[in-house]
Design a protein around this nucleic acid. Structure first.
Lengths: 142, 142
DNA sequence: ATACCTGCAAAGGCTTTGCGGTTCG
DNA sequence: CGAACCGCAAAGCCTTTGCAGGTAT
């Protein structure tokens, strides 16, 4: 994605049904130019160097819009509120994107519990499946 | 865990180096009695029925303490701040528990991308590996 | 006896919202 | 031109913090 010219970016935004404003171009460009999974604040700080007028509120709104149309993803799989679990063993979670229920799921594949990867010491792993629980699925697609 | 008597719960708390207060017993009991991955607020509401005096602040503190000693887990793998990612393809994340950096990781095992499980329609899956990145690892264990 | 824990209330931080004005298509 | 979008600032949550009093060991 890196190095994409402005025209290509404009097309991408329009293909997703969005107006191509310079704020959006700047935000999207900032996001595809890094692998650091930045926060809204971080993106805001970076953009401000080139466009001192952009506001933090717009960055939030824009990122949310991008998520809605599927252009980007939130890395954080939940919606802000902390959720707790007394089961500390290895298992997965089925997260409903509508009602935000969280169900446990068995480990489907017995994955290797790597203790290292690229020098990164892994202490715990979690798998999230996002989608629609049976009842929400019904209420959405009929 | 369900149905554990009070004595057993007290032992569990003590084994983790914690004082056994009735607030903690109530909070822990509430958490092991459900599979709904409740929020602090939810636990608070439930406990209030039996012990109207317990405060929400204590629930938060207690849950945090339980996490620190490994008695429970936060389901949410990050620390409250939303993080964004322009790469929407299937990949994993290495989350540093100290500096909160997030690196991409390749899919180690080619997992089956189930579209269904228990009637749950899966649209996206994310795997989080929590641990220490190379530099934090160094600064912790010498 | 003392270190730990709780309740209360205030503060903090992240995110959303409302509104008037502006811009894109 | 109309709908979509932006900046600004205030409000809204969720969570943490500080402190004085109480409790477990």
């Amino acid at each position: 994605m890196k190095g994409k010219n402005e025209k290509a970016l404009i097309s991408i935004l329009r293909d997703h049904g969005l107006h191509a404003t310079f704020q959006r171009l700047a935000i999207y460009e900032a996001l595809i130019s890094t692998h650091e999974h930045p926060t809204a604040e971080t993106i805001y700080q970076q953009i401000k160097k080139r466009f001192p007028i952009v506001s933090l509120g717009t960055v939030y709104k824009t990122l949310e819009t991008f998520c809605e149309v599927g252009l980007i993803h939130k890395v954080n799989p939940l919606t802000g509120v902390a959720r707790y679990d007394a089961i500390t063993g290895h298992h997965h979670h089925l997260v409903c994107m509508k009602c935000h229920s969280i169900e446990d799921a068995e480990s489907i594949v017995e994955e290797p519990r790597l203790s290292e990867q690229n020098g990164f010491r892994v202490l715990r792993q979690q798998v999230f499946f996002h989608g629609y629980c049976p009842s929400c699925r019904e209420s959405i697609s009929g």
